[in-house]
C-alpha cells in the first residue's frame, strides 16, 4: 500500500515535470543540460522529458525608450531627440544565446539605434525635422531608414525584430534655450506690434469709410431735399400763375398792397408827395 502510494507520487511528479502549459504571452525554449533543443512558439499544452528544463521569453511587443540624447544635425544644430523602439523577440533561441534577458537586449538595442539615429540625423537639416512647411519635414522617412538598418542588424545578431523606431519628441539642449528664448521674445514683440498696428490701420479704415458714407448719405439727402423743395416751388408757382393770370393788373395791385403791409414798420418814415393818390384830395380838394 505504501509502495503503491510512493510510486503514484513519483509518477505524478514526473508527469508534472513532463507536461506544461505555454502561455499566449510566452515563447518556450526547452533545454537539455543547458543546451537548447527545442523552440516552442505556439501557446498550449506541451510535453518534454522530465530531465529537460523550460525557459520562457516574452512574446509580446515591447517598448524600449532610450534616454533622450543630443544629436548634431547636418547644419550643425544641436537637438535633443527622445525616441522609442517598438520591438519583440523573433527568434527566442538566438535571443537566448546572444542577449539572454530584456535589460541585455535593451542595452544592445540602445547601441544599435543610437548609431543609426546619429547617422540619419547627421545627414538631415533641422528644417527637415521641424518646419512649418509640412513637405519639408522628413522625420517619418528618416526614422523608417533608421528602423530598417536596426531591423537587419538586430534580427541577424540578436534574434530581435525591430518593429518601429520613432521620434517621440524633438527639443533643444538646455544651453541653446536662452538664445531660442531671446528669438521667441523678439518674435513675440514683433507680433504684438503688428497686432496693434493692424488694429490702428483697420480702425482708421473703418472711420474713414464711415465718414465717407456719412457724407454720401447727407449729400444724397440734400439732393433729394432740394428736389422736393423745387417741386414745391414749381407747384406753387403753377398754382399762383393759374390763379393770377385771370387778371394780372388786379393781382399786381392786391399783391403790392400786401407787400406794403409786410414791408413797412414803425421806423419807416414816408415822404409823401402832396399830389400822391392818397393825399390829392387833402391838398387839392375835389378838383378835376
Amino acid at each position: 500500500m505504501l509502495r503503491l502510494a510512493a510510486l503514484a507520487l513519483l509518477a505524478l511528479t514526473i508527469a508534472l515535470r513532463a507536461v506544461f502549459a505555454l502561455d499566449e504571452t510566452q515563447y518556450g525554449v526547452v533545454t537539455q543540460f543547458g543546451r537548447p533543443v527545442r523552440t516552442l512558439t505556439a501557446a498550449g499544452l506541451h510535453a518534454k522529458w522530465p530531465w529537460q528544463s523550460l525557459l520562457t521569453f516574452e512574446k509580446r511587443l515591447l517598448i524600449y525608450n532610450p534616454r533622450p540624447s543630443e544629436f548634431l544635425t547636418r547644419d550643425k544644430k544641436n537637438i535633443v531627440v527622445d525616441s522609442y523602439v517598438c520591438w519583440r523577440i523573433a527568434d527566442p533561441n538566438r535571443f537566448l544565446q546572444t542577449t539572454g534577458d530584456l535589460p541585455g537586449a535593451e542595452m544592445r538595442l540602445h547601441d544599435t539605434v543610437w548609431a543609426a539615429t546619429a547617422a540619419a540625423l547627421g545627414n538631415a537639416d533641422l528644417a527637415s525635422l521641424v518646419s512649418t512647411r509640412a513637405e519639408a519635414v522628413q522625420v517619418e522617412e528618416l526614422m523608417r531608414q533608421v528602423a530598417e538598418q536596426c531591423r537587419a542588424r538586430a534580427a541577424e545578431q540578436y534574434g530581435i525584430e525591430v518593429v518601429d523606431v520613432r521620434i517621440k519628441r524633438v527639443t533643444l539642449p538646455t544651453q541653446n534655450r536662452e538664445s531660442v528664448f531671446a528669438r521667441m521674445r523678439a518674435e513675440r514683440e514683433r507680433i504684438a506690434k503688428q497686432y496693434r498696428a493692424e488694429g490702428e490701420a483697420e480702425a482708421m479704415k473703418i472711420r474713414a469709410e464711415a465718414d465717407r458714407e456719412k457724407a454720401r448719405v447727407l449729400s444724397e439727402a440734400y439732393k433729394e431735399a432740394e428736389r422736393i423743395r423745387g417741386d414745391g416751388d414749381a407747384e406753387s408757382t403753377r398754382i399762383y400763375a393759374a390763379a393770377y393770370s385771370r387778371d394780372p393788373k388786379f393781382y399786381k395791385l392786391v399783391r403790392t398792397l400786401e407787400a406794403y403791409k409786410k414791408v413797412i414798420d414803425p421806423n419807416t418814415t414816408a415822404i409823401l408827395s402832396s399830389d400822391s393818390e392818397l393825399l390829392r384830395l387833402l391838398t387839392q380838394g375835389r378838383a378835376k
Binding site: E198, G199, I206, R207, A210, K214, A221, E224
Partner: peptide
C-alpha cells in the same frame, strides 16, 4: 487691443452712420 481699437472704430462708424441717417431723414 487690436480688437478693442477695431470695435471702437465700429462703434464710431455705427454712431456716425446712425446720426447721418437721422440728419438725412430730417433734411428730406
Amino acid at each position: 487691443d487690436r480688437d478693442r481699437i477695431i470695435n471702437e472704430a465700429h462703434g464710431y462708424a455705427s454712431d456716425a452712420l446712425a446720426k447721418a441717417a437721422g440728419e438725412a431723414g430730417k433734411l428730406v
